[in-house]
Amino acid sequence: MIRRFGSSPSAADFEALAHAAFARIPAPFADHLDGIVVRVEEFADAETLAAVGLSDPFELTGLYHGRPMDKGSVWVAGELPPRITLYRQPLLAEWCETEVMLEDLVTHVVIHEVGHHFGLSDAAMHALEDGAP
């Protein structure tokens, strides 16, 4: 008997999961998310990996690109809108290696990157997660 598996979730599926995660972010935070663009790529490129101090493309599941809100100014012009990039292959690998539901995994990454939009550091977000009930 041949086992058949469905196709892996597409970039469009990941984008839909990301938008669903945005929809669950409560006010007043949700009020400050207009204009954030979500992109899905297979992997981060070598330049992006080097910029965040990584060499293994499977180590980066998402990245915030843009000026955090606490660094914004009305005098800044000509910048692209903030965006969150999800890296599909690393997310699929983590999904396969863990028992975490894909929706929960994508939500976790989106929330983490939204934290960067609000100016939170990785250390601050980990401290918040560790203190969460």
Results as ranks from 00 to 15, higher is better:
1 M>L: 09
3 R>A: 06
3 R>P: 01
5 F>W: 13
6 G>P: 08
7 S>K: 14
7 S>F: 10
8 S>Q: 14
9 P>G: 05
10 S>T: 15
11 A>N: 08
12 A>R: 15
12 A>F: 05
13 D>C: 05
17 L>Q: 04
18 A>G: 11
18 A>N: 09
19 H>G: 07
19 H>S: 10
20 A>P: 02
20 A>E: 11
21 A>E: 06
22 F>A: 03
26 P>A: 09
26 P>F: 01
27 A>E: 14
27 A>Q: 15
30 A>W: 04
30 A>D: 09
31 D>W: 11
34 D>N: 08
35 G>W: 08
35 G>A: 09
35 G>I: 09
35 G>C: 05
37 V>N: 05
40 V>W: 03
40 V>S: 00
40 V>H: 01
40 V>I: 07
41 E>Q: 14
41 E>A: 13
42 E>N: 13
44 A>S: 03
45 D>I: 03
46 A>C: 04
47 E>V: 07
48 T>P: 07
48 T>C: 13
48 T>L: 13
49 L>E: 05
49 L>T: 12
50 A>H: 10
50 A>R: 14
50 A>P: 08
51 A>M: 04
51 A>T: 01
51 A>W: 00
52 V>T: 08
53 G>N: 02
53 G>P: 01
55 S>A: 14
56 D>R: 04
57 P>D: 02
58 F>K: 00
58 F>I: 00
59 E>M: 06
60 L>V: 06
61 T>A: 10
61 T>M: 11
62 G>M: 04
64 Y>N: 07
64 Y>F: 15
64 Y>V: 09
65 H>K: 00
65 H>F: 11
66 G>F: 02
68 P>E: 00
69 M>P: 00
69 M>T: 05
71 K>S: 06
71 K>P: 00
73 S>F: 09
73 S>N: 11
74 V>D: 11
74 V>T: 10
74 V>F: 13
74 V>N: 08
75 W>V: 12
75 W>N: 11
75 W>R: 14
77 A>K: 13
78 G>K: 09
79 E>V: 08
80 L>Y: 10
82 P>F: 00
84 I>C: 02
85 T>M: 02
87 Y>W: 02
88 R>L: 02
89 Q>C: 03
89 Q>A: 12
93 A>I: 04
94 E>V: 13
95 W>Y: 15
105 L>Y: 07
105 L>V: 06
105 L>I: 07
108 H>G: 15
108 H>K: 15
108 H>N: 15
109 V>L: 02
109 V>R: 03
110 V>Q: 06
111 I>Y: 11
111 I>H: 09
113 E>V: 04
114 V>P: 07
115 G>K: 02
116 H>E: 06
118 F>M: 09
119 G>H: 09
120 L>C: 12
120 L>W: 14
123 A>Y: 13
124 A>P: 01
126 H>I: 02
129 E>N: 12
129 E>Y: 12
130 D>I: 10
